[in-house]
C-alpha cells in the first residue's frame, strides 16, 4: 500500500450558526481516484476548501504529501472550484498563462503547455478570443485546463461534471482516467452516484458534515447492503438444495427450480458457493453476484431526507 497523499484528521469547520464539517477524517492514497460523495450541503465544498487552505479548520489538521498543509503545496495541487470563474475580459491564452504563473510555472513553459492543452481539447482556435466570447462549456474546459498546467500530483475537482453536456462529460471522464494512468491522484466531489460508481477506486460518503462510510468502492459494496446471488441451472440442479440450506453461506433463498436468488450470509464468500454447487453436480447457466448500486447504498445511508435534498436545484443548498 502506498503512503497517503492526503490525510484529514478529525477536521471540524464551523460557520456562524452551523457546523459545516464535523470531525471528518479521511485518507487518500497516491494514484487513486477518490470520490467525496454527499448530498448538497453535506460539507463537500467546505472540506475541499479546508484542504486547499482557503479555510482554516477550527479543529483537526490536514496533511498533504506527508507534511502539514499550507499554500506551499499549492504548486503540486490542481484545483477546480465548484464555482467556476475566469477573468471575463481577458484572452483565453493570457488567462491560462496567468493562472499557471501564480502557481509558480515559468511564463514560457506555461504558454507552451497552455497551447498544447487548448489544442488537445479542441480550443486551439479560440486562444486569442476573450473569455466572455466563449460558451459556458468552453469556459469550463478552459478552467479545467488551468488546473492541469502546472502538472500537479494531486488534482481536486469540485463537482467536475456539473453543467457539462454528455460529450464534454465524456472528455472530462477520459481526462481523469488519463491522469490516473500517469500516476496522478484525483479527488473529486459529486452528488451523482452513477458517475462515482464508474470512476472511483475509493470513496467517502458524508452528510451533514459527518463521515458515514469510506473505503474502497468494492469493500463498501461488499459490506453495505446484502450480497445477492442469482443462479440459473442448466437442466440439473444437482445437490443445490443442501448448499442453499447451509446457514453459514446463505441467509435467505428464493428457489424457482431452474432459477434461484440468494441473499448471502454475513461474511460468506460467493466463490465457495460456486465451488460447492459444481462439486454437487449442478450444471450452471448463470452465476452472477448482484451488488447493490452505489445509489442504493447512498440513499440507504443518507436517508430519505437527503434524497429530497438531492432533488433540489443545484447549488442552492451549498454553503460557502
Amino acid at each position: 500500500m502506498t503512503a497517503p497523499i492526503l490525510v484529514l484528521d478529525r477536521v471540524t469547520k464551523r460557520f456562524a450558526g452551523h457546523t459545516a464539517v464535523d470531525g471528518l477524517s479521511l485518507s487518500v492514497r497516491a494514484g487513486v481516484i477518490f470520490g467525496l460523495l454527499g448530498p448538497n450541503g453535506a460539507g463537500k465544498t467546505t472540506s475541499i476548501r479546508v484542504i486547499m487552505d482557503i479555510f482554516q479548520p477550527d479543529e483537526g489538521s490536514v496533511q498533504l504529501f506527508g507534511e502539514r498543509a499550507g499554500r506551499d503545496h499549492s504548486a503540486r495541487i490542481g484545483y477546480l472550484p465548484e464555482e467556476r470563474g475566469l477573468y471575463p475580459r481577458m484572452r483565453v491564452l493570457d488567462v491560462l498563462v496567468f493562472l499557471a504563473e501564480v502557481k509558480g510555472v515559468p511564463r514560457r513553459a506555461a504558454r507552451l503547455r497552455a497551447l498544447e492543452w487548448l489544442d488537445r481539447l479542441g480550443l486551439g482556435d479560440w486562444r486569442l478570443r476573450r473569455v466572455n466570447e466563449l460558451s459556458k462549456g468552453m469556459q469550463q474546459k478552459v478552467q479545467f485546463i488551468s488546473t492541469m498546467l502546472h502538472d500537479p500530483d494531486l488534482v481536486i475537482l469540485d463537482e467536475p461534471f456539473s453543467g457539462l453536456d454528455p460529450v464534454n462529460a465524456q472528455v472530462m471522464k477520459d481526462t481523469v482516467l488519463e491522469l490516473r494512468r500517469r500516476g496522478k491522484t484525483i479527488l473529486f466531489s459529486t452528488h451523482i452516484m452513477e458517475q462515482a460508481e464508474k470512476l472511483c477506486d475509493e470513496l467517502c460518503i458524508i452528510a451533514r458534515g459527518k463521515k458515514l462510510v469510506d473505503g474502497a468502492l468494492s469493500d463498501i459494496k461488499r459490506t453495505r447492503g446484502g450480497h445477492h446471488l442469482v443462479i440459473g441451472f442448466d437442466g440439473s440442479a444437482g445437490g443445490a438444495q443442501q448448499v442453499f440450506a447451509d446457514k453459514g453461506l446463505v441467509k435467505r433463498v428464493d428457489d424457482y427450480g431452474q432459477y434461484a436468488e440468494l441473499e448471502l450470509a454475513a461474511g460468506a464468500d460467493a466463490q465457495q458457493i460456486l465451488q460447492r454447487l459444481v462439486a454437487s453436480g449442478a450444471r450452471l447457466s448463470r452465476f452472477e453476484l448482484m451488488e447493490p448500486s452505489l445509489n442504493k447504498i447512498f440513499i440507504d445511508l443518507v436517508g430519505p431526507e437527503a434524497a429530497r435534498a438531492e432533488a433540489r436545484p443545484e447549488g442552492q443548498a451549498v454553503h460557502a
Binding site: R49, M52, D53, I54, R71, S74, I77, Y79, P81, E83, R84, G85, L86, Y87, P88, L99, V102, K103, S146
Partner: peptide, 10 residues
C-alpha cells in the same frame, strides 16, 4: 467572476 477562489488557493 469567482476567479478569487482559484487565486487564493495559489
Amino acid at each position: 467572476s469567482r476567479v478569487i477562489e482559484v487565486l487564493v488557493s495559489s
